[in-house]
Design a protein around this nucleic acid. Structure first.
Length: 578
RNA sequence: GCGCCCGUAGCUCAGUUGGAUAGAGCGUUGGCCUCCGGAGCCAAAGGUCGGACGUUCGAAUCGUCUCGGGCGCGCCA
């Protein structure tokens, strides 16, 4: 159990003995200032109010009832009724010894593991992956890793777009190119983006081709074998491209996590029929709609959720409903998380509302849209290439590696070319991912090479450097595992601060799991790296003697482990040197 | 017109869900090398938290209004 939870339990008991209701929240938090100790309980003021008692008097009763003698060296009341707790140095040392001996670094699995369905990445397979897919992919993957680390059952759902109207056009174009032979086709498919562009061009220029394309959409949806075969060929090529991107990004999505739009194809008529049976449908201008009172449009009239077009075709709302039913009723999710652009928030609200109304998800199932803002260039406008096109992820990563190479080789020219290349590969990807993860999801995000590759501040290079620096201590000391013995003793203030921070990993990871905000973990790791630098500055490690030396070595080792684990949870790999 | 999101140091961003004197990095200024990686550490300066009113012991955080910016709003996804 992490420290805050432990204190919470002790305080809850004490609050009850002091006359507070059973559900009173002691409001435990890390201390806001060093002079307030290590943790503070802020709940006395609120509870005193509901009990109509003077807050300081209640705080005193709580402290009287509280028994922290085994873990705290000081408990005092301050200000209007804050209760400040200072923990025993020796107790902290023992906690650290214990945490260090575990693979999970003292983080306990969730008491009640849940089933989490996580919808992220979900690119459209008609084109190459581009920057628009980056945030969902990176943030979603980090949250997935955190949830799994806490022992939850995570079901990834890569809801790729493989079934829109563009696919008729692409199939027709495949057929056109194949007339030049199989080799011609595989060559053409190597450049997916170019393939799409050429198909579109032909579509716009040649009415006959456009007619064929439109006819193929219908044939495809009717299950025509020829069209399906061509379609499958295209999908396979495009999926392989996505997998190369995932591989390079270090994203955990695999082929088995794909649950494409087309997978719900046969459910769509059922959804319409079922909504009809439940009297939720109303026809409007020829389309089948669900009207919800809580959503109104331009003239104040209820806004429809169109689930079937007047021509009988289905829309993405229909597919999303089918997906929600699958996730809620078949996968039995406790939480369904959508890492989707903020611009889709109305759409998702509507779909969630319809799904609940129709009973497609249990009422206990939490549906969450984890929205994120748009990626902007440094000019504050949507991030584009110089020519104004969308930035492909592969090209973005190429540039990241090149720029990382320049930075790393400039700072550490004695490394070999091979080492530099390998380091640049890691640093480049890490910089791109970390810059995204470190920011609050909901704001638009300004993409800046200089900032993400900076060696100072809350960046991947700074954290990777901190890891490398710790490693170099071990290298320099020529230490093997047998050297890491003894116990951690927190004597110097810098050691104490570092040790206390190391014990907070569990609190932070739980907060990330609750809010799906990986930036909390980034801030924590950055703070931790800063505390380590301060410790390292103030406390000689290799030059220290006996028990102090082994204690400090253990602190270094634990810091390295927490940094490495934390970065791993963010989907970022660490490197031995840089 | 209606709805959602955002306004925090010159710039880029935090702020643990209502807690004590609002924090980092960059940039600016000034310190620290008998140093285990100085890619570091310490310190200074920089703020009416867009504005107003309200809720209460207490507001960057909650409510109402207002100004500014972004996005969305019937058969694309």
């Amino acid at each position: 159990m992490h420290i805050r939870k432990l204190l919470e339990q002790r305080f809850q008991q004490a609050f009850q003995q002091a006359g507070a209701p059973a559900d009173a929240n002691p409001q435990l938090a890390p201390a806001g200032r060093p002079e307030f100790g290590d943790y503070q309980a802020n709940g006395a003021m609120a509870v005193a109010k509901s009990l109509r008692q003077p807050p300081r008097a209640l705080a005193q009763k709580v402290v009287d009832a509280l028994d922290l003698s085994d873990i705290a060296s000081k408990v005092e009341i301050a200000g209007p009724g804050f209760i400040n707790i200072t923990l025993h140095d020796t107790w902290l040392g023992k906690r650290l010894d214990g945490a260090l001996s575990e693979a999970h670094l003292g983080v306990e699995p969730a008491a009640q593991p849940q089933t989490m369905v996580v919808d992220y990445s979900s690119p459209n397979l008609a084109k190459e992956m581009h920057v628009g897919h980056l945030r969902s992919t990176i943030i979603g993957d980090a949250v997935v890793r955190v949830l799994e680390f806490l022992g939850h059952r995570v079901i990834r759902q890569n809801h790729v777009g493989d079934w829109g109207t563009q696919f008729g056009m692409l199939i027709a174009y495949i057929e056109h190119v194949s007339s030049g032979g199989a080799a011609q086709l595989s060559l053409a498919l190597e450049d997916l983006e170019g393939f799409y562009r050429n198909a579109k061009q032909k579509f716009d220029a040649e009415p006959a081709f456009a007619d064929t394309a439109r006819a193929y959409v219908v044939k495809l949806q009717a299950g025509d074998a020829h069209c399906l075969r061509l379609w499958q060929q295209f999908i396979d090529t495009s999926m392989s491209h996505c997998e190369r991107v995932y591989e390079r990004l270090g994203v955990t999505l695999r082929r088995g996590d794909v649950k494409a739009e087309s997978a719900y194809n046969t459910d769509l008529p059922w959804v319409i029929a079922d909504l009809g049976k439940q009297k939720l449908l109303r026809e409007s201008e020829g389309a089948q709609c669900v009207f919800l009172d809580e959503f109104t449009g331009k003239d104040g009239a209820p806004l429809p959720v169109i689930v079937q077009k007047s021509d009988g075709g289905y829309l993405y709302a229909t597919t999303d409903l089918a997906a929600l039913r699958h996730r809620g009723s078949e996968l039995r999710a406790d939480r369904v998380l959508y890492f989707v652009d903020a611009r889709q928030s109305l759409h998702l609200k509507q779909v969630f509302a319809v799904a609940r109304l129709a009973g497609y998800v249990p009422s206990t199932c939490s549906l969450e849209h984890l929205a994120f803002g748009t990626m902007m260039g440094e000019d504050g406008k949507p991030f584009k290439t110089r020519a104004g096109g969308t930035v492909k992820l592969m090209e973005l990563l190429d540039e990241a590696e090149q720029r990382a190479y320049v930075v790393v080789s400039g700072k550490n020219p004695e490394l070999s070319e091979g080492e530099l290349r390998a380091i640049a590969r890691s640093v480049g990807v890490a910089a791109v991912k970390y810059a995204d993860l470190a920011k609050n999801r909901i704001n638009d995000y300004i993409f800046s090479w200089d900032q993400m590759l900076a060696l100072d501040g809350n960046t991947a290079p700074y954290l990777l450097y901190a890891c490398a620096r710790i490693n170099s201590i071990f290298r320099k000391g020529e230490l093997s595992d047998t050297h890491f013995t003894g116990h951690i003793r927190l004597e110097h203030p810098a050691e104490r601060k570092l040790g206390l921070a190391l014990l907070r990993l569990g609190e932070v990871v739980e907060a990330v799991a609750a809010d799906c905000n990986p930036n909390l973990l980034c801030s924590y790791l950055y703070d931790l790296a800063g505390l380590f630098m301060q410790f390292y500055e103030a406390c000689p490690v290799l030059k220290a003697e006996d028990a102090t030396r082994s204690s400090r070595l253990l602190l270094c080792r634990h810091t390295a482990a927490v940094l490495q684990r934390g970065l791993d949870l963010l989907g970022i790999e660490t490197i031995a040197q840089m």
